[in-house]
């Protein structure tokens, strides 16, 4: 408990709220870095996932590729890319974008796939164009699973952004590594607690968002409701 007391003291120490290593600054870096990474990953994964989900083509390839991507340890990718590109944040961005793509991609295409075919046939029958079907039927109905995928990706990126500090001056992970080098366990533990709190806070926010994005009339449907629930929660690790 003593250790925790010193870690809390470290977190509350006013000296850690000034300068280039200030806690709010590190939290800000951590969040901005994670957000930008998620934007990159989404820009790649969402259109691709929608294409796969809407056409039903390339699913096997997507599953295999994302399965392979998931087995890749981020630390390895991070150090390898860092050796290629040198100092700066490029290596962490590349490594973490690769990490974030599979869950978002899966969220996007399973969101479309989970929709009852009859719903889409009905939309087509009432005269909707393909684009309208995507926009007015598939997008809103697929949203909960997509948000589930984003939630999962966000948590992974927030968690792994800690590791990015191994090669770059970035985010809350700095406290872990500089504490390790200077044998300052209060700093390591304090930094760890901050990352954990940040992850839990985001988990809570996403849980709330997911509650609100389920379109009216979908949540109560007996056939698909349990499927959706299992889906989003499992996808959220």
């Amino acid at each position: 408990m003593n250790l925790f007391a010193s870690a809390i003291a470290w977190i509350l120490d006013p000296a850690n709220y000034v300068g280039l290593n200030a806690i709010p600054l590190r939290i800000g870096q951590h969040l901005v870095f994670s957000l930008v990474t998620l934007v990159f990953a989404s820009a790649i994964a969402i259109p691709l996932g929608y294409l796969i989900g809407h056409t039903g083509r390339g699913r096997g390839l997507a599953v295999t590729t994302s399965g392979g991507l998931r087995a890749i340890p981020t630390l390895g990718l991070l150090t390898l890319v860092a050796l290629w590109v040198g100092i700066g944040v490029v290596a962490p961005y590349v490594a973490l974008t690769v990490l974030a793509i599979p869950p978002i991609l899966a969220g996007a295409y399973t969101g479309f796939e989970a929709i009852d075919r009859r719903t889409i046939d009905a939309a087509r029958a009432v005269g909707m164009s393909e684009l309208q079907i995507v926009r007015k039927v598939e997008l809103p109905l697929g949203l909960p699973l997509l948000i589930g995928g984003l939630r999962s990706a966000t948590l992974q990126v927030i968690a792994t952004a800690t590791l990015a500090a191994y090669v770059a001056d970035l985010g809350l992970g700095r406290y872990l590594f500089s504490g390790l080098k200077t044998r300052d366990y209060a700093e390591m533990l304090g930094g760890s607690i901050l990352v954990i709190l940040l992850a839990l806070a985001l988990e809570g926010i996403f849980a709330l968002i997911q509650r609100f994005v389920v379109p009216r009339g979908v949540s109560g449907r007996p056939g698909t409701a349990p499927k959706l629930r299992t889906g989003s929660s499992a996808a959220a690790r």
Binding site: L3, F4, A7, L155, I158, A159, T160, T162, L163, G173, L176, Y185, M188, L189, G191, S192, I193, V195, I196, A199, L200, L202, E203, S233, A236, R237
Partner: peptide, 21 residues
């Protein structure tokens, strides 16, 4: 299940640092 969900949200590297304490 809520506990498991929260535990799963805890990043691993920080957890490895916290466990010894």
């Amino acid at each position: 299940l809520t506990g498991a969900g929260l535990l799963y949200a805890v990043p691993s590297l920080p957890l490895i640092f916290v466990l010894p304490a």
